[in-house]
Nucleic acid binder design. Structure first.
Length: 1050
RNA sequence: GGGCGAUUAGCUCAGUCGGUUAGAGCGCAUCUCUGAUAAGGAUGAGGUCCCAGGUUCGAAUCCUGGAUCGCCCA
């Protein structure tokens, strides 16, 4: 037995969870717990986690807390299991969002204005802004207990990082997979800039556009025309083909003395009711034909047959079912033309594009040279020209929503711009095979959203005509664009150029030139930077400046076992990681990926600043604490389903779980200290009572469940099983063992302490603060300095007793039934009753017998009587076991159900118990029912206060004798005295002298049970009747007056 | 327009292989317990399992179609 005045340090009065957590945080820092937890696993097997880098140019929100706590829990768990889990933080620094932010700040609105402002100054602003909120991020990261090394993060803008990215691009170039092609982008011809999809979304307007039906003569078939439809006649000079749907049925129609070909389904809509098909043909048949191109006179393209090709995107939703293809002016057009070999996407100049960057036709378009393509007059003239040449069927207008430049309101055009690509289509099969080996949570992403995306892979458009990004390391001879050098390191560039590379960013890198290796001309860098997704996808090696240094570290930490981000990363980081590592290392860089859902407000709306429904993480933390926040995210639902979230919802998880846990902890500390007992002298577990062994068995079952679920990355089920255990521990074990704690029973204290210490370890990855607080207070001198330095508990099967757990469940069920019966009869528990009658047999009866004392205490009943044959209380009824009988009986099942209900339950039960089958007649056939085929249940007989469940029932003898009545009154008196103690501000362990006065009935009951009253109220001296009727505290008990005088003894 | 997911009590969510009487917590009402608790217990009200078909002896569960919401893509 401990000799200190305090066995365990008690929780501080009035300290809330947020304060406790801050205290724990300080201790972690002092001791260096995170660092220690890593040192402990020096040389151990690695568990590799990759941090997907956030951009720190804004304050972190609640959705960031979600991903950060899920990034934390599994590395903590694996660390406790003995793995070494290094965690390196990272920051994503480049990219268009950063630039847009600075543009807004500086009031710039075009690339032209940025260049006037100066790229050097602009990029400097970007550089400063990306880490603007890094302190906020670090503070929040630390406060929510996300353990990651914030002191040595990787930054995608650092020279080392950029160099590693360059190295990888050169490798890809050496593989022949880096090429210059075109990319069809939404383009503003006035601003001379391409727009991101985000910008495009800003500028949709409803406009009227021309709707033109054009006839294209079929080669060698006089007077026969393909009928095409377009809303952008300016694209017709760029026409190189016509696409048809392979599954679409086409028709030849006589119309105005000509034969027109169009989709069968669209004849009426395009040509009117009178038009009739004369014959039909399939899209595939059409592809055997050609038509006379080009549509407009072109100075470099003499008339020649043009191909008809098939395209899956062709529908009969509008138009004619024949789609004019101008690969320079449409994404579909570009892809389908490339796929049919009409041009070679890897050969820049094979794409036919007669429109310049300023949006005007070049010299090739005869008669329209220099005209702006979106000019209204031009459109009229183009239509008139078609009409004059007999190619126009009709021209109308068409109202639709069309994107405009959000800056200058010019209608955007889709336009093929020069762009650098990575030929990811070549590694598509490898990526698919790699994906097959990745574990996805939730699983449907793997072959759903992500798998589909991989199946439809197109080459990665890598370059961006922007400023703040990793510069594309391609140098081109200004005299011969075919001479190109891709640079893979600073040393290489320094050697070629003789210049020192201080900063690889624009504009400095643009100044670095060198003489062409061929001997004539100067090598200059292309102007583009690369897609920021490529940066983050390179983090497995670039974070280590691989291959320039840290080769061993990289080898050890590739691939990652675990990554975790929100669902929107499927086409972002999840893809870029897979693509880059498949290119570089021919395998995926991650084995398990957890996708998290979105954070919604309680109405199911996405949280956004504009809606004003954002919940700031600090509000939640200040009010409820980080553990509550974490616990809510982990256990409230499956994390990929999205969270309907508010500060109040988090509060529920505190009340329900953390407070129960905390109160249980407080209870143990209170009585361990009061009794000066730390449990060290408890008997071995095997010798402790059933209740103790039950709690420890349930604990071990919980350890097993938690381990099993966390191994499957299922924090939800794992956490819920801990929740269930704490509920049982608090509301059943502690509640049922209170007297033993008052007496400081070493077994009880050791048991509860053991449960709480182990639970603290189980909880350490979930709620690291409260877990550590409880652990360090209870672990004692043999424990570690922190729960996070301990090994995760392993399930101990020797302490598990399935039978005991089952028996306890039966006993609990009996208590619940009896409580329900009391409530029904409106007899409160304070009133003792004589007898409980339990209908049970076999194992159930044994179970109840085993916990009889507990049950009697819980129910305040004197004795239990068992009834095996329940006839006097209830009757048996039979119910079919559908699962067994359904497949056997099929259509006769409903009849059998009736027949079974009509059987004599008691007799059938008797037979079944003796192994005799029960005969049943259904549809003229005799059926033999065995015990497996039916369920026997109890139905109450009239006139009994009975509660039942299955074959199990409890009845109460409600007779209250005079003696029981007086005993009940004595309990009422105790209750009143306890209240008086509380009112007088006495501590629970204070001894008192007690004087009672008032109504004689009450005093008589108290006298009869004087020992009980004195014992319960810790009265050393009891003077029953010694108080005047108006002395002390006057209480009303059962309508009678009782005066109570309590005084603390010295 | 396409793909994926979701829809169960007032709210937040479970619901296994299809098994006939769909559960929990919160909230509400009534009662109750208290020598740990911001607590606990009991009872009750509260359900067209989104809708319509289908498969089946039997559907919240499987299939088809539709509706609504969300995400991604166009």
């Amino acid at each position: 037995m401990a000799t200190d005045s305090q066995v365990f340090e008690p929780p501080k009065q009035g300290e809330g969870f947020p304060q406790i957590e801050e205290r724990v945080l300080r201790r972690w820092k002092e001791i260096g717990v995170f660092e220690k937890s890593l040192e402990r696993r020096e040389g151990a097997e690695r568990f590799v986690f990759y941090e997907g880098p956030p951009t720190a140019n804004g304050r972190p929100g609640s959705h960031h807390v979600l991903s950060r706590v899920f990034k934390d829990i599994f590395p903590r768990y694996k660390t406790m299991q003995g793995y070494r889990v290094d965690r390196k933080a990272g920051w994503d620094c480049h990219g268009l969002p950063v630039e847009l932010e600075i543009e807004k700040e500086l009031g710039l609105s075009s690339k032209h204005e940025i260049e006037n402002y100066g790229i050097a100054a602009f990029n400097q602003k970007c550089r400063e802004s990306v880490l603007r909120y890094v302190e906020d991020w670090n503070a929040l990261t630390e406060r929510i207990g996300f353990w990651i090394d914030l002191d040595d993060p990787y930054r995608t803008m650092s020279n080392d990082y950029v160099e590693s990215v360059w190295w990888s691009l050169k490798e890809i170039h050496n593989q022949g997979r880096l090429y210059e092609g075109h990319r069809v982008v939404p383009y503003c011809p006035r601003c001379g800039t391409a727009l991101s999809s985000h910008e495009v979304a800003l500028g949709y307007k409803d406009v009227e556009d021309p709707s033109v039906y054009v006839k294209l003569p079929v080669t060698g078939q006089p007077n026969t025309h393909l009928l095409i439809w377009t809303t952008t006649p300016w694209t017709l000079p760029g026409n190189v083909a016509v696409a048809v749907g392979p599954e679409v049925t086409y028709a030849k129609v006589e119309h105005g003395g000509e034969t027109l070909i169009l989709a069968n389904d669209l004849i009426e809509r395009v040509l009117g009711e009178d038009a009739k098909a004369t014959s039909t043909l399939t899209g595939t048949e059409l592809t055997a034909l050609t038509y006379d191109g080009p549509v407009f006179e072109l100075n470099d393209r003499p008339p020649a047959p043009s191909p008809i090709i098939s395209g899956d995107f062709v529908t009969t939703g509008d138009g004619t079912g024949l789609v004019h293809i101008a690969p320079a002016f449409g994404e579909d057009d570009y892809q389908v033309a490339a796929a049919h070999g009409i041009f070679d996407p890897t050969q820049q100049d094979t794409l036919y594009n007669p429109v310049g960057l300023d949006g005007t036709y070049d010299d090739r378009v005869a008669g329209f040279e220099g005209r702006f393509v979106k000019d209204k007059d031009l459109t009229e003239e183009l239509i008139a020209d078609l009409d004059r040449r007999g190619l126009l069927l009709k021209a109308q207008t068409y109202e639709h929503s069309y994107p405009h430049c959000w800056r200058c309101s010019t209608p955007l055009i889709y336009y093929a711009k020069g762009s650098w690509y990575i030929k990811t289509t070549e590694i598509r099969e490898q990526m698919l095979a790699g994906n097959d080996g990745i574990s996805w949570y939730p699983p449907h992403i793997k072959h759903g959203r992500f798998g589909d995306w991989l199946e439809n892979n197109v080459d990665w458009a890598l370059s961006r005509e922007r400023y703040w990004g990793t510069p594309l390391p391609v140098w081109i001879n200004d005299e011969d664009p075919d001479e190109q050098v891709v640079i893979g390191s600073y040393a290489e560039l320094e050697q070629l150029s003789g210049q020192k590379i201080e900063d690889p960013h624009r504009p400095y890198i643009d100044e670095v030139t060198f003489p062409a290796p061929s001997g004539s001309g100067t090598m200059r860098r292309v102007p583009e930077v690369i897609d920021a997704w490529y940066d983050s996808g390179s983090m497995p090696f670039a974070q280590w400046h691989y291959p320039f240094e840290n080769k061993e570290i990289f080898d050890e930490k590739f691939p990652a076992q675990y990554i975790c981000e929100a669902l929107d990363q499927t086409r972002g980081w999840f893809y870029s990681l897979l693509a880059v590592s498949t290119l570089m290392f021919e395998k995926p860089s991650y084995e398990t990926v957890l996708c998290l859902g979105l954070i919604l407000d309680p109405e199911g709306q996405k949280m956004s600043k504009s809606r004003g429904n954002v919940v700031a993480p600090w509000d939640v933390i200040d009010e409820h604490g980080a553990d509550a926040f974490r616990w809510y995210y982990f256990t409230s639902k499956e994390p990929w389903a999205g969270y309907r979230f508010s500060t109040e919802t988090v509060g529920e998880s505190v009340r329900k779980f953390l407070l129960t846990l905390w109160n249980t902890f407080g209870f143990l500390v209170l009585y361990a200290n009061a009794g000066d007992e730390d449990g060290a002298n408890a008997r071995p577990v095997a010798e402790r009572n059933d209740f103790d062994r039950w709690a420890l068995s349930r604990l071990q079952s919980t350890v097993a469940t938690v381990t099993d679920r966390l191994d499957d990355y299922d924090a939800t089920a794992a956490g819920r099983s801990i929740d269930d255990f704490i509920d049982e521990l608090s509301n059943w074990y502690v509640r049922g063992s209170r007297r033993r704690f008052w007496d400081a029973d070493p077994d009880a204290i050791a048991t509860l302490r053991d449960c709480l210490v182990t639970v603290a370890q189980l909880l350490a990855p979930f709620t690291p603060f409260v877990a550590d607080e409880i652990y360090t207070k209870l672990a004692g001198p043999g424990g570690e300095a922190s729960v996070h330095l301990t090994d995760f508990p392993k399930p101990d099967d020797d302490k598990r007793d399935q039978r005991l757990e089952q028996d306890m469940a039966t006993a609990r069920a009996a208590v619940e039934l009896a409580r329900a019966a009391r409530a029904q009869a409106k007899v409160k528990i304070r009133q003792p009753l004589g007898e409980i009658v339990v209908v049970a047999s076999g194992e159930e009866r044994e179970a109840i017998g085993r916990f009889e004392e507990l049950i009697l205490g819980e129910l305040n009943v004197k004795s239990v009587r068992y009834v095996t044959d329940a006839d006097e209380l209830a009757k048996f009824e039979l119910r079919p076991n559908f699962k067994a009988l359904g497949p056997r009986l099929g259509k006769n099942m409903p009849q059998a159900k009736e027949a079974i209900a009509a059987l004599d339950g008691a007799k059938a039960n008797e037979n079944l118990k003796n192994g005799k089958p029960v005969r049943l007649n259904v549809a003229g056939e005799e059926i033999l029912l065995t015990a497996d085929d039916v369920q026997v249940v109890l139905a109450p007989l009239d006139g009994y206060q009975l509660e039942r469940e299955g074959t199990h029932a409890v009845a109460l003898d409600l007779t209250v004798t005079e003696q029981l009545k007086r005993e009940g009154l004595a309990r009422e008196v105790v209750h009143a005295v306890q209240n008086a103690r509380k009112d007088s501000g006495l501590a629970v362990e204070d001894r008192i002298t007690l004087k009672l006065g008032g109504d004689e009935t009450l005093l008589a009951a108290a006298r009869e049970h004087e020992d009980y009253v004195a014992g319960e109220t810790l009265a050393v001296v009891a003077d029953i009747g010694g108080a005047d009727s108006d002395e002390g505290i006057v209480a009303t008990v059962e309508g009678l007056e009782l005066s109570i005088v309590v005084a603390k003894t010295v």
